[in-house]
């Protein structure tokens, strides 16, 4: 009985073993490309012309927009992972969800902070409770809630389902964030990049934005893969500790 659960756990980890191998090989390259693109994007951003209204303040856009984009992208990724957990019960899916939550929370906090710093000179206040800002703040709270939930339960099996369900329920917030600028009259400017009729932003500003957005997205993936690797290792340590406790029992009578 004890043997089957241990070997069952090990076969569960067999797949992650291949994953770890792949990550080990590709991670340095991914990290290098991500940093390169990010620096290139930010450098292009500094070379780009200033906004005629906002002056050099507009440059914070090259941080704020990627952060905000990643905060939503990360949540969608977690929702996909949640589906993977609930439907296919893939062991990596839960690892992906759990590893993404703190990164998503960090990027959301950064998006809120950069937005706040941007808003101070533009709107004259650090914070307003309008549709966009509030819904992103709610997203931040949801990240923290998922984080607390995954930390609260010790058993990965049980916490996986709970976190997956919570994540899927929270998906409803993502379209609210996306369309909040259109549904409510707010200070936050409406969408200017992802529009059906093409971007309204000038190409000289758009290109640096795109490059830095891709760069930051790759940084996100780098961090995510590293966090997944750490999470897999953490679980293996837990399994090994339980096995060590069992072994101590077996050796005791001798």
């Amino acid at each position: 009985m004890a043997e089957t659960t241990i070997s069952g756990r090990l076969t569960n980890l067999a797949n992650p073993t291949r994953f770890l191998e792949l990550v080990g090989r590709f991670l340095p390259w991914l990290a290098a490309i991500a940093l390169l693109l990010t620096f290139a994007g930010l450098a292009m951003g500094f070379a780009a012309p200033e906004d005629y209204q906002q002056g050099s303040t507009v440059r914070i856009m090259y941080l704020h927009v990627p952060f905000a984009w990643i905060s939503m992208f990360c949540y969608m990724l977690m929702a996909a992972a949640a589906l993977g957990t609930l439907v296919w019960k893939h062991p990596l899916a839960d690892v992906a969800l759990k590893a993404a939550a703190p990164i998503g929370a960090t990027f959301t906090a950064l998006a809120l902070a950069t937005g706040s710093i941007w808003g101070r000179p533009m709107w004259g206040t650090w914070w307003v409770w309008d549709g966009r800002l509030t819904s992103v703040f709610v997203l931040f709270l949801m990240y923290l809630g998922i984080l607390a939930l995954t930390r609260a339960l010790d058993d990965p099996q049980r916490s996986a389902r709970a976190a997956a369900i919570l994540t899927l329920v929270g998906v409803i917030n993502i379209p609210i964030i996306k369309f909040s600028v259109e549904w409510w009259n707010t200070l936050h400017q409406p969408a200017s990049v992802m529009r059906l009729d093409g971007p309204t932003i000038h190409p000289s500003l758009l290109w640096p934005l795109l490059v830095s957005a891709i760069g930051f997205t790759l940084i996100f993936f780098t961090l995510h893969l590293m966090a997944m690797r750490a999470e897999i290792w953490r679980r293996r340590v837990a399994v090994m500790r339980r096995m060590a406790a069992k072994r101590a029992e077996n050796r005791a009578p001798a």
Partner: peptide
């Protein structure tokens, strides 16, 4: 050998 293990892991 169990000094470093969390108490909750034990039987």
């Amino acid at each position: 050998s169990v000094g470093a293990l969390p108490f909750g892991y034990l039987s």
